[in-house]
Amino acid sequence: MTTTTRRKVGIAGAIVGAASAGVAGLALAKRYAVGRIRLRPDPEASEPFGELGGAEHTFTTSDGVDLHVRLDGPQDAPLTVVLCHGYCLNLESWHYQWRALREHHRLVLWDQRSHGRSLRAPADDCTIDRLGDDLGELLDAFVPGPCVLVGHSMGGMTIMALADRRPELFGERIKGVSLLATSAGKLAELTLGLPALFARMVQKVAPGTVSILGKGGTLVDRTRHAGNDIGFLVTRFFGFGDSRNVSPTLVDFAESMIRATPTEVFANFYPALMNHDKLSALDVLDPVPTAILVGDKDWLTPPEHSRSMAEALPKAQFTEVPDTSHLIQLERPAVVNRALRDLIKQVEG
């Protein structure tokens, strides 16, 4: 080996060594950061997340997809509350509302298609309109009388799609609606808090990137499961407005639901969320008591989206919750539960 060759090999080795040391250093820093967070006092450490039970049912939609459904509360209650979860979550995300309402109200909770324990749907059938059809069919099968619909994030969009496709249900059977951290459209314009130039770059490359991730979903999922500390930090940062004080157990619970959602499902629904536009369907909700809630630090469905809905529904009760982000029903359960109880009282009148 010549002197020149040895020098090149040495330089290459130094570069690889430095890069490896950098990666190892970042991994160590990440582990240290997560470890410090987990050592903090955790008031939710004994909370029985995922253990509330309820009667399990399987419902097959008109296009042949089996949905996982739970029924709880007194089955002879005069009012049913239907809880519709968000993107990359499942019915367990309603833990605090489920626990608070189950004593006096009949509850219907369900995993939206391809989420939780419901079966996967083909990519072409992963649309907001199809979710609206699923909800309508679910009401026909499991809700014998009047009901209140509650939707978080994509679940709120599901309710809007139902209003667009079956407006006759609102006022007749659907007596109240609550929309949490959701949007009537224009999600493709999200900035995620980035400066305008970077936001435009992200908006431009995001659809193609998500499509590529979806095609390599199995490999990506293995990487996601290996990197749950990163998932913990990302969920803590984006999901919770007061991230410094949020319970590590609660972050783990939320992150586990997101991580359990296959990357292919994330990719299949992404175009539907970006193309969602149901502002005109809000007119259907106007005669129905409606509560709109959003966190003031929500980067995924920013407050201005909820304000736009409130402007379209001037009779709605609008609440912007301080120091709160996208997972509002988990981060501020007392606020959300109080709003839902007030809505139910208004409906029962």
Results as ranks from 00 to 15, higher is better:
Met1Pro: 13
Thr2Cys: 14
Thr2Asp: 15
Thr5Arg: 15
Arg6Gly: 09
Ala14Leu: 15
Gly17Gln: 12
Ala18Cys: 14
Gly22Val: 11
Ala33Phe: 05
Val34Tyr: 08
Gly35Arg: 10
Gly35Asp: 14
Arg36Ile: 06
Ile37Lys: 08
Leu39Thr: 11
Asp42Cys: 06
Asp42Gly: 11
Ala45Val: 14
Glu47Pro: 02
Pro48Ala: 09
Glu51Leu: 14
Ala55Gly: 11
Ala55Val: 12
Ala55Cys: 04
Glu56Arg: 14
Thr61Asn: 10
Asp63Val: 00
Gly64Arg: 11
His68Thr: 07
Val69Glu: 00
Ala77Lys: 03
Leu79Lys: 05
Thr80Ser: 14
Leu83Ser: 00
Tyr87Met: 04
Tyr87Pro: 11
Cys88Arg: 09
Leu89Cys: 10
Leu91Arg: 08
Leu91Asn: 06
Ser93Pro: 00
Ser93Val: 09
Trp94Pro: 05
Trp98Met: 02
Trp98Phe: 00
Arg99His: 05
Arg102Cys: 01
His104Ser: 12
Arg106Ala: 03
Val108Cys: 05
Arg120Asn: 09
Gly132Lys: 05
Leu135Phe: 06
Leu135Arg: 01
Asp140Ala: 12
Leu149Tyr: 05
Val150Gln: 06
Gly151Phe: 03
Gly151Ile: 04
His152Asp: 09
Ser153Glu: 08
Gly155Lys: 03
Met157Asn: 06
Met157Thr: 06
Met160Cys: 11
Ala161Thr: 04
Ala161Tyr: 04
Ala161His: 07
Asp164Tyr: 07
Asp164Lys: 15
Arg166Thr: 07
Glu168Ser: 12
Glu172Leu: 06
Arg173Tyr: 02
Ile174Gln: 08
Lys175Thr: 02
Gly176Gln: 04
Val177Tyr: 00
Ala184Glu: 13
Gly185Ala: 05
Leu187Pro: 10
Glu189His: 13
Glu189Met: 10
Thr191Tyr: 11
Ala199Lys: 08
Arg200Asn: 13
Arg200Leu: 10
Val202Ala: 13
Gln203Tyr: 10
Lys204Trp: 15
Val210Glu: 09
Ser211Gly: 13
Asp221His: 10
Thr223Asp: 09
Arg224Asp: 07
Ala226Val: 05
Asn228Ser: 14
Asn228Cys: 00
Ile230Val: 13
Phe238Asp: 04
Gly241Ala: 03
Asp242Ser: 14
Asp242Glu: 13
Ala254Gly: 09
Glu255Ala: 15
Arg259Asp: 14
Thr263Ala: 12
Glu264Met: 08
Met274His: 09
His276Cys: 14
Asp277Val: 05
Leu282Met: 15
Asp286Glu: 13
Val288Phe: 04
Pro289Val: 03
Thr290Asn: 01
Ile292Leu: 15
Leu293Arg: 06
Gly295Cys: 06
Trp299Cys: 08
Met309Trp: 08
Ala312Phe: 04
Leu313Gln: 08
Leu313Glu: 03
Ala316Asp: 07
Ala316Ile: 02
Phe318Val: 07
Asp323Met: 12
Asp323Asn: 15
Thr324Lys: 13
Ser325His: 10
Ile328Thr: 06
Ile328Gln: 06
Leu330Asn: 06
Arg332Asn: 10
Val335Asn: 05
Val335Glu: 09
Arg338Thr: 12
Leu340Asn: 01
Val347Arg: 02
Val347Ile: 07
Gly349Glu: 09
